[in-house]
């Protein structure tokens, strides 16, 4: 540290602003994505439950992020034997 540093304090605020902008851009996207996944999961479950008896925890939705594309992985585990809802139930649920 030279004597000149004493008179010219470091300007750290622009660094703080830039770091925050980059971080929050990323965090806002991932918070939005977890909402999206929750919504997708709920609706997928709704569609399947109209036709098959399925416990709520048997539908898994995952999102993999990559540079160019992101992929959505949906895993649905159907209990054996598959119990299809009767036609009238299906209509009532729909």
């Amino acid at each position: 540290m030279t004597i000149f540093n004493f008179f010219k304090p470091s300007r750290s605020a622009p660094v703080a602003r830039d770091r925050l902008q980059i971080l929050l851009q990323h965090e806002r996207v991932s918070a939005g994505a977890s909402d999206l996944i929750a919504k997708l999961r709920e609706e997928i479950l709704g569609v399947i439950a109209r036709h098959v008896d399925i416990p709520a925890d048997k539908v898994q939705v995952k999102m993999q992020r990559a540079e160019a594309v992101s992929t959505l992985e949906v895993e649905i585990e159907l209990p054996n034997p598959v119990r299809q809802r009767r036609k009238e139930d299906t209509e009532a649920a729909a």
């Binding site: 304090p9 470091s10 300007r11 750290s12 605020a13 622009p14 703080a16 602003r17």
Partner: peptide, 11 residues
């Protein structure tokens, strides 16, 4: 903030 040591209101 004016000296650049604290985030400004605008930031």
């Amino acid at each position: 903030a004016e000296r650049g040591q604290m985030l400004k209101v605008e930031d």
